[in-house]
Design a protein around this nucleic acid. Structure first.
Lengths: 351, 351
DNA sequence: CTGAAAGCGCTTACAG
DNA sequence: CTGAAAGCGCTTACAG
């Protein structure tokens, strides 16, 4: 089966009627519609997307841009695959398809996005890993293509975003540690320009302030967002003269490398150094002592992202009357042993 | 900037010349070409993909279908992201873009593929997770869309595929275990219809045969391809009356669950039960005792997949004169402690 | 309820 | 070397 023309010929009716029947337009005789649907199914006809898109001006495809940096792939980040289910559950209600657009690691993300947008392969975009200054946001705003970002940025203004509650994480982690007597609390923050590092740092400073603890820049350890980064962070902490008694990590995989370096040095997490990890991660699940970290639902976040995106699209916004919310996505503390909270202040196990 | 018409008007030349200049056709005055390229860059013009595709009959997009089953995403499989770099390094040579098509978990993969193919959103497809009987292969063959599968199947005939060397893994794992005195060797195989389970089982049976060991069906433990599956496998092994002394796993994440269950039972891998894992995985890297497993390069596999695919596409096959090879992708043994090989046959550490 | 026709944005023979 | 025109496969006013 080639095109709608062949199908129409086979049924001996006009292509206009075939098209209307297939697209569920109301003004079609029900018997005609039935015949068309049966024949289409039989002959395996599905409308050519380029023809549709060109005529309609929409592709019915939503793009999820993935930055497949070496770091991400080496560390096996399953974050995006975790989002797709939730995204699709919403998009499929509107017959929209989701495609993932992996930006080659040797291509500039901005250039890549520009190309994809200009070619009009998608009706809307979801981007993530926002930088503090992120030209992609200006680009998307300028071209007026609907989009939502996972992650805030200092770029743009009044654009739809959703972000994790880094502030909340910083607060509850610091509170928890301070309640246990810690005053020297380090953080391992990403060394690149990704915005979450800045947001977390802010939250951390404010939390310290609330407790009347002076901010010490030497306790902000900047490392790569990876296992290796965690290893490096532990290494630097061990070298500090006035060593911190606690550390908060800002990337899920850091804990693994950090544990490794600590273990090499005979430093036991939870006993000798309190550790609070970031997002709960299957891979960090088997660390001993168990890691105190934060839990969130990736599929639910996917749903939220999709709904926020659709709320910005004229053709769908009436389904989502709340409009595009700038949502701070909550994380829930999962207590483990790594912050020594199960021990009393004297280091003995609580009863 | 909207379309080629606006760009042509702005330059005061015809759209045909603009198109030819942009597409690098030879018969264009170099000065004209320069002006066109400059103006396009300036005004951010990029050809609308639907227009191009409709006219040319090709999309210049290659699709990588992803099955995002719950198992896969929950377990955070980074397999596909690991492939993209290699795939893109080849595809970009030909100005082809890679998109990932995640099949919703509630949609039948065959129906999903059918829809994507019929809509002509891609010029060619890469599919994976082939089943023993996989209708997708017949579908793709029938519709004559170029494709390559990652994984063999009993379906179809003479189609391009690449698969991991399960036979080689089975052989070298069994050989290694037998050399160490094991005669009762279990395998933990996937319980679904995925073809690799059958291929591995065959390899395992032949390897046993070579060593004159009778095949015992009770030693084939069928579980899910996940951490949980590994846990379940260990559980079932522990319940066996005539317990095996060794087990070979056929999915990378099983080792983690298996270790957990063994540890609960006080059974130490390498000492009380020899364990050989499948693909080396960052997450399994920190298991103690270290896991004996098999290493492969995902990026290189991506390159191979892309080249095999292009060899089947008329427009590109002359670049890849070797044609579409049915390639068995090798894996290399990475010795660890989990199979007790570092110990002598008497259980003492070797010198 | 159906058909004939226009036109979405492009590329590519064809003519000059 | 350039322009005018056809046509890729569809959807959608418009007319009947």
């Amino acid at each position: 089966m080639k095109g709608i023309r062949q199908l129409a010929e086979h049924l001996d009716i006009s292509i206009g009627t075939v098209s209307r029947a297939l697209n569920g337009k109301p003004d079609v005789n029900e018997e005609t519609r039935r015949r068309v649907l049966v024949a289409a199914e039989e002959l395996g006809y599905v409308a050519n997307q380029s023809g549709r898109s060109l005529r309609q001006g929409t592709t019915n495809v939503i793009g999820l841009m993935i930055e497949s940096s070496k770091e991400t792939t080496e560390n096996g980040d399953n974050f995006f695959l975790g989002l797709t289910g939730g995204l699709q559950s919403v998009l499929s209600r509107h017959k929209l398809d989701l495609i993932m657009l992996p930006c080659p690691s040797d291509e500039d993300p901005h250039e890549y996005l520009k190309r994809m947008v200009a070619r009009r392969v998608v009706d809307a975009m979801i981007i993530s890993a926002t930088q503090r200054i992120d030209k992609r946001i200006d680009l998307l705003s300028r071209t007026k293509i609907p989009f939502v970002t996972l992650g805030r940025s200092a770029s743009g203004s009044n654009y739809p975003w959703i972000d994790l509650d880094f502030d909340g994480v910083a607060n509850s982690a610091v509170d928890r540690l301070v309640a246990h007597g810690h005053r020297r609390i380090a953080i391992a923050a990403p060394s690149n320009d990704i915005n979450l590092g800045f947001i977390f740092l802010d939250g951390y400073r404010h939390a310290l302030e609330r407790h009347g603890i002076a901010f010490d820049p030497s306790l902000v350890i900047r490392v790569k967002s990876s296992e290796q980064g965690g290893y490096q962070a532990a290494h630097e902490i061990l070298l500090l003269e006035d060593r911190p008694t606690a550390v908060i990590l800002i990337y899920e995989l850091m804990a693994i490398g950090l544990y490794r370096r600590l273990t090499e040095a005979g430093v036991i997490p939870g006993r000798d150094l309190a550790v609070i990890g970031f997002r709960e991660e299957p891979r960090a699940k088997f660390l001993q002592p168990t890691l105190t970290c934060f839990r969130m639902s990736l599929p639910d976040l996917g749903v939220e992202l999709a709904e926020t995106l659709l709320a910005t699209m004229p053709a769908y916004s009436h389904f989502y009357p709340e409009g595009a919310r700038n949502c701070i996505w909550p994380l829930e503390l999962v207590p483990g042993e790594s912050d020594g909270f199960h021990l009393g202040n004297n280091g003995q196990r609580r009863q």
